[in-house]
C-alpha cells in the first residue's frame, strides 16, 4: 500500500490547508463496510452463506457493500439521499434488489435497472444489465432522531 499512500499524500496536505470539508457537528452520519459472502458447509453437509471479513478476495467472489446511517441529532432529517459509485472492478450481482435505483451512465440519469438502456456496439440501444451499473442510490423521505439503518448491495468481482 506504500504506492497508494504516496499518491494520497498531496491530496491529504491540500485537504489540511483547505480545512475539513465536512462540518464536525453533523447530526447524521454514514459509514460504509465491505464484507465477503462465503458459502460454507456445516457438519451436516448443509451449505449456508456467511459474511466474513474480506481477507482474501479473487475474481468471482461475492462482496456486500454496506452503508450504515445514523441520526444522532435531535431533529428529523428529510430527503436523505445516499449515493455510491460501483467500483469498475465489480458488477452488481444478478440477484440485487430489482427496485434498487441505479445509474448506468456515471450518475447522470437514474432508474430501476429494467427501465434503463445503454448503447450497444452498433450504436443502437440495448437493455442495461447488472454489469452496466455505475452508481446506486437510495432515497429516504425521513430519518427520525435516533434512527439508524443499513443499506447494502451485493456485487461480484469481475
Amino acid at each position: 500500500m506504500a504506492f497508494l499512500l504516496k499518491i494520497l499524500a498531496p491530496a491529504l496536505s491540500l485537504a489540511l490547508f483547505a480545512g475539513p470539508t465536512v462540518a464536525q457537528e453533523m447530526p447524521i452520519s454514514i459509514e460504509v463496510d465491505l464484507k465477503l459472502e462465503k458459502s460454507v458447509v456445516d457438519a451436516d453437509g448443509n451449505s449456508r452463506v456467511e459474511r466474513v471479513e474480506p481477507d482474501l478476495i479473487v475474481p468471482g467472489d461475492r462482496l456486500v457493500f454496506g452503508r450504515i446511517y445514523r441520526n444522532s441529532g435531535p431533529e428529523a432529517v428529510p430527503n436523505f439521499v445516499v449515493t455510491s459509485p460501483v467500483s469498475s472492478a465489480v458488477r452488481l450481482a444478478p440477484d440485487a434488489d430489482p427496485s434498487l435505483v441505479v445509474s448506468v451512465d456515471g450518475g447522470k440519469s437514474w432508474g430501476v435497472l429494467s427501465a434503463l438502456t445503454v448503447a450497444a456496439e452498433d450504436g443502437s440501444a440495448r437493455p442495461a444489465d447488472h454489469a452496466d451499473v455505475t452508481h446506486v442510490r437510495w432515497t429516504l423521505a425521513m430519518v427520525a432522531p435516533g434512527e439508524t439503518g443499513r443499506l447494502e448491495f451485493p456485487a461480484i468481482i469481475r
Binding site: 447530526p27 447524521i28 454514514i30 460504509v32 463496510d33 465491505l34 478476495i57 462482496l63 457493500f65 454496506g66 452503508r67 446511517y69 431533529e75 432529517v77 428529510p78 430527503n79 436523505f80 439521499v81 445516499v82 449515493t83 455510491s84 459509485p85 467500483s87 472492478a89 465489480v90 430519518v143 468481482i157
Partner: peptide, 11 residues
C-alpha cells in the same frame, strides 16, 4: 475495489 458513499439532505 473501493466502497464509499455520499449522502445529501436538506434540513
Amino acid at each position: 475495489i473501493e466502497n464509499t458513499a455520499t449522502a445529501t439532505y436538506d434540513a
